[in-house]
Design a protein around this nucleic acid. Structure first.
Lengths: 294, 294
DNA sequence: TGTTACCCATAGACATGGTCTATAGCTCCT
DNA sequence: AGGAGCTATAGACCATGTCTATGGGTAACA
């Protein structure tokens, strides 16, 4: 018989050596004693060496057997650890979840889910990567994140999109423009006021620009800011009318520091989608999180 | 599917991960690609986790797969080492050989074989334990030595005896008794000279005492010494006639510093035997050595 | 000195499951 | 568009790992 064993035999050998008894090993492995006996014999024949002394009380390692055991023991322990670890990964007791998205989506939309997820699965490490939608898509394709949270629509055959939530953008203003509180403004009226928009090429910015163009107007911001927080802050201080996602200013709307400025055309809702790579399996953590979010 | 895998699957997983290709793994393991594909799928199902991303170029570990690999790689390396080591043990490139025997037998009989064995198998460590025959037998039964080299006869059902060599005891004297060189002495004549015997309860001492008794004489040594070397030395210096093993004084007999004192009754030859435990398998080193010695 | 009770070894029957061939689908490259 | 990689799937087959039944041996104990 040649080298290149059935590794299964090592498991049997390990238990036989560990328990000092073929019968005990058989019990531990849910086998019968003859099976174990046969397995050990196979190993011995494959090595051309006797591994155990057999006596009336059980078995005992020979010199050669002891040498083999010193290696196999470590090997088996590693495998046992591996199996534990895999179970932990599957049960979300360990592992990591890497999410990409914009800061504002994280803060106002993803955060509560992340908190809940982290509470349920404290063993899973969280990695957040923020960036614009195109950046997030790159991250995904490079395998740097497991899933991305971005605004719809996204069309990319490589990406799997799960729509998960609807957001409504709107115009808001602070106390200085209190007289607009109950008005419904036509677009041209609105444009007479200073407008504050997000400066970067965000989905929302593109949407509102296109909307005004479709009605024959061109919306040009008085102020451009780089973060949603500033958008809100500037509106509060009366520097103009901000175009923001309503869900992100719900607190301000409630407490009255901001109010919505209605206009006479419908603003299309925007959808938030969860992006994953199509044809690429999800990690347990990622699929667990997506399940939670829906 | 539950935990407690066929460890054979890990071997397949290892090669798939290592080569980054199920087809390559199949080649390495002398399997077909579908077998490997099936094996990986089994592992994945057993863990409830995807281990590889499949793409047109081959496969790539997922997060979970990478975790598994970090454990399995070590485990497989250990097994590979174990298999190498076992082959080395079998081929006597490593291991150890523990022999018990009396100093004189080592020096005059075992040593040449040991030298030859060591030359052929320099990787095998040698351990020599000297002691009397009963001590050697104890060592054997305690498992402290692999084989013992002692004088026959030995009767012990637990021991396996291989007779290997015949020795002839005889009386020798030095220059001072040169006049006895060509004589053949009757026993009573011999007893008029001072006799030097080994002091301990050796097989040789018992044999000669019994021999004289069977002829109605009692042999009482003038001098008792504790080693064969002293037995030889005292005879050389003319302190008396020593009873020694002829083969141990072959050098002295040749160079003429000692000569044999013949007597008129035949001295029975004694046999050297190799003792091993019966019903206990021999180590490769031990059986290799026994094979050499015969 | 039987008797019991535990070991391990062996033989032979059986069925599981690992391996194969054949085939299809996919992606990348020319 | 065609070819050459890759992996997945389906289904057949038989090797081999597992079982039951049995035997022999040793240790403990009455």
């Amino acid at each position: 018989m040649s080298m290149g064993n059935n590794y299964e035999l090592y498991k049997v050998f390990y238990w036989a050596a560990k328990t000092g008894s073929l019968s005990q090993a058989a019990k531990a492995l849910y086998l019968t004693q003859p099976s174990v006996s046969h397995a050990i014999k196979q190993l011995e024949e494959s090595f051309g060496v006797t591994l155990f002394y057999r006596n009336a009380k059980g078995v005992e390692l020979t010199q050669e057997g002891a040498v083999l055991y010193s290696y196999i023991e470590q090997s088996q322990i590693l495998i046992a650890r591996a199996e534990e670890k895999m179970a932990a990964l599957k049960n979300l007791e360990s592992g990591e979840l890497r999410i990409g998205g914009s800061d504002s989506l994280f803060k106002h939309y993803v955060l509560p889910y992340l908190e809940q997820f982290h509470e349920q699965h404290p063993g899973v490490k969280l990695h957040l990567n923020h960036g614009t939608t195109p950046e997030i898509i790159s991250f995904l394709k490079e395998g740097r994140i497991d899933l991305g949270v971005v605004r719809m629509p996204i069309v990319d055959p490589q990406l799997q999109v799960t729509e998960s939530f609807q957001l409504q953008d709107c115009f808001v203003a602070g106390a200085r423009y209190a007289h607009l509180k109950d008005a419904v403004l036509p677009l041209d009226k609105l444009l007479q006021y200073p407008i504050i928009l997000f400066s970067r090429n965000s989905r929302a910015r593109m949407t509102i620009t296109e909307l005004f163009q479709s009605y024959g107007y061109s919306i040009k911001p008085e102020i451009e800011v780089g973060s949603v927080d500033l958008l809100i802050e500037f509106a509060k201080r009366g520097l103009g009318i901000s175009y923001v996602t309503r869900e992100f200013v719900s607190k301000e709307l409630e407490e009255g520091s901001l109010f919505e400025v209605r206009i006479d055309v419908p603003l299309p809702p925007s959808h938030v989608g969860i992006l994953t790579m199509s044809n690429m399996p999800l990690s347990s953590a990622a699929s667990g999180f997506i399940e939670l979010i829906r």
